[in-house]
Design a protein around this nucleic acid. Structure first.
Lengths: 347, 347
DNA sequence: CCGAATGCTGTTAGCGCTAACAAGACCACT
DNA sequence: AGTGGTCTTGTTAGCGCTAACAGCATTCGG
């Protein structure tokens, strides 16, 4: 495992084999100038149908493929977007990535990714820099993390950049699901079942989504003058939900719990089951995300659905607007939807 | 070539915006030729330390960033790999993607992705073509699908390509977790608990992983001369597992079930619970994948762990070898590990 | 003291493509 | 015939970079 040659260095021999056909080769075969071929390929400028046919035939025959590097060099546009993705299988971020990729591909852009294990000022900065070296035209940062916001404060101003689900205070457009509203809805739903208050299993303090969900929960209770129980905090994992569940067991007045995501809710259910607490008969539980599994938990979980495809689409739209030089505005919200299942059925 | 390299002079009027500084700009500021700057930046060739310092200072000051397009144009190497990813939140494929991206980044490569919704001959071909237009140097196809194999038969021979978890019959190197062995181990584990046979909830017929797991299960039973129950088939989703579970309820001799993935196992557990069948007391259930949730199912699920990070690393290694012109061999397996939990505890 | 090896730097020639303009053909009118 | 248009095609000049080689010094062996 010695120092291997990196692609940018010239220590490697060029790839073997005959070189790819160029415009000039096609031009030669079709008996026209390379510019005519360029015009045919890019549909830019008038070409006589007859000539066009000849050129296309030659393109076909030689298997000509435009050289993106040459094109990018002269146009200054690479046709590639960059996405800084949080390396995790968390349902939301992964889904968002695909949403963005789809929208981008439809618009003719390629997508380069750069993953980040732990969001933070430096790592996000590094990722952005790494993408810039790949000459992306714009960048999406999927980093629903508080520190991401700080990292984005120092965001380079000379490249279009938008953030998904984070970067609250940063000078970049942000798009996200309306966590606050979603949390309000779950909390209200739980209260509507006749409970005097709702407990909350929150996500990590340094995630904006966790904060928004917690705020939605808290303000709903406060708005009704209800007691606000102490927050229990997890780290999104089922394990942390399980541990939180064990801590909650036996709390006085524990009738309804809103977990900040479905995975932790799963842990809760597990802990309650072990302790002989029945859901929904004894305690009612709701989650957030609507992961595909949620419908099949024991019992099926009431949760909040987020439309990540829509988030991806809107994100790309925003970035496109920025790249066109427009002002994309500051904050964009996608509505969340309450999905009621067995875990909160009225007794 | 105009006199654009005179020290300290800005020979061009930047029309649309301030263009990115080029080698020539750095050279001008440092009072050297652009070649010297190139040598410093790429650490290719001898440069006097003193000169080097001056150049680096200029690079720093101007915020110089090499133009990848220009470099790619002249070297014929883009420094980018392409990954064809299945658009899904299935735990395996998503994890593999990150594994590959990590290994690639460490080696100095960028990663472009192109997702496909439904694998098939055309869509994978399209994705590969789309990546080629982005001038990737090599391609990884994550497509554990039977049709993927057929699509890869027609794989372009003029670009290094490796497949993850699929493309059995294709003329490309394939790397995957040893599904067959994993399935054998689970089945043997279930049999070791004293059952006369093991039922199997298989994945979609057109997934190679599903086939391998099924084969591992079947041959284990056959090898011991045990009865092989009719296979029940799902589509990986919890829902299909639930439906399969309802179909299995009441089958004679139903004592042990091996589900081809954890999500379906979750559905099974749900169906059994609803039917009053206790796990593991009445029936014992095992899954495959070891998703993070599996440990917190009710009951915690016995399953098979796959090391996707290792898969990603090995995959990149293989691709690198191919890119260097080497023969990467045909099939590479990563070991699977049995994880025993409550759902198969001996009574 | 000479020729050769070495270290450092510069010059030149493209890579394949597009932007911009030039040029020829053809047409319709004066 | 002359003038000005449109349509089609060609020519030229780079984009920013690296490969290859060409200069210079300087050093070294003999």
């Amino acid at each position: 495992m010695v120092d291997r040659a990196k692609p940018g260095e010239q220590t490697r021999t060029p790839l073997p084999g005959p070189r790819q056909p160029s415009l000039a080769d096609v031009a030669g075969m079709a008996g026209v100038s390379h510019m005519t071929v360029s015009r045919v390929v890019n549909e830019s400028g008038p070409v006589r149908p007859e000539t066009r046919e000849r050129v296309l035939a030659a393109v076909q025959k030689l298997g000509y493929r435009p050289n993106t590097a040459a094109r990018a060099l002269v146009t200054g546009r690479s046709g590639t977007l960059g996405v800084v993705a949080l390396e995790s299988n968390l349902y939301g971020p992964a889904s968002t990535l695909y949403g963005i990729e789809n929208a981008a591909r439809e618009a003719g852009y390629g997508v380069a990714i750069c993953s980040v294990t732990r969001p933070g000022r430096t790592s996000i900065g590094d990722a952005v820099e790494s993408l810039r070296r790949q000459a992306v035209e714009g960048i999406v940062v999927i980093a629903p993390h508080v520190t991401a916001g700080r990292a984005l404060e120092a965001a380079p101003a000379d490249i279009p950049l938008v953030a998904v689900g984070g970067g609250e205070a940063a000078p970049v457009p942000v798009i996200s699901v309306d966590q606050y509203d979603g949390a309000r809805r779950v909390t209200e739903h739980l209260l509507s079942l006749g409970h005097r208050t709702v407990w909350h299993l929150a996500g990590p303090e340094d995630w904006l989504e966790a904060r928004d969900r917690e705020r939605g929960w808290r303000e709903t209770l406060e708005g009704r003058g209800l007691r606000v129980p102490a927050v229990v905090r997890g780290d999104w994992s089922p394990r942390s939900g399980y541990e939180a569940g064990r801590a909650l067991v036996g709390k006085r007045g524990l009738k309804a719990v809103f977990s900040a995501n479905d995975q932790m809710a799963l842990g809760l259910l597990r802990a309650f089951t072990e302790a002989g607490i029945r859901v929904p008969e004894d305690v009612q539980v709701a989650g957030f995300d609507d992961v595909p599994e949620a419908e099949y938990f024991t019992p099926p979980l009431t949760t909040v659905r987020q439309d990540f495809i829509e988030v991806g689409r809107r994100t790309f739209g925003l970035l496109e607007e920025r790249m066109a030089g427009g002002d994309a505005g500051a904050r964009h919200l996608v509505a969340a939807e309450l999905v009621v299942r067995e875990s909160t059925r009225a007794r």
